[in-house]
């Protein structure tokens, strides 16, 4: 039976076309963490690396940190935003788009840089940008 890290690795490959590099190790059950292979082998009692995904939902939910690190490898289900929408996204507003994607999680980018994760359905994008990183517009 596939482990949760294996399911997530397969999911991001199928959904986004992201091949997770060999040296990046994914560990955990429902809340997955990612780490360097050297850190995985390092002796410590504290959590290693940073969050990679939440596996509790219908679809695995990749973390913003995961997408900001590996979003440049994505080949599909990527939505490129104009500046105005990019700023709105960073304020955690939901968005509308004319661009096409498959229903499910999408990667949102601005001028090639990954902003984070949204959930696309019928032209609407639900915002999953982390509250602690949001910006405020004057």
């Amino acid at each position: 039976m596939e482990s949760e890290p294996e399911k997530f690795t397969q999911y991001v490959l199928e959904r986004f076309g992201i091949p997770i590099p060999d040296w990046v190790k994914i560990e955990g059950k429902s809340n997955l963490r990612m780490m360097s292979s050297e850190l995985q082998n390092f002796q410590t009692t504290t959590p290693k690396g940073i969050p990679a995904a939440n596996m509790n939902g219908v679809f695995p939910k990749p973390s913003t940190s995961f997408l900001q690190l590996f979003g440049n490898l994505a080949t599909k289900n990527v939505i490129e935003l104009e500046k105005e929408d990019a700023l709105k996204f960073a304020t955690r507003e939901n968005l509308q788009t004319l661009q096409n994607a498959e229903t499910g999680y999408v990667i949102l980018k601005y001028k090639g840089a990954t902003l984070g994760c949204g959930f696309y359905k019928e032209g609407k994008i639900e915002n999953f940008f982390p509250k602690q990183r949001m910006i405020t517009l004057k």
């Binding site: 780490m35 360097s36 050297e38 504290t46 940190s65």
Partner: peptide, 16 residues
């Protein structure tokens, strides 16, 4: 931890 996450440092573990 917030800075490790925001900046994407995956080769670190914290201790207190």
């Amino acid at each position: 931890s917030d800075n490790l996450e925001r900046l994407g440092a995956i080769n670190a573990s914290t201790s207190n």
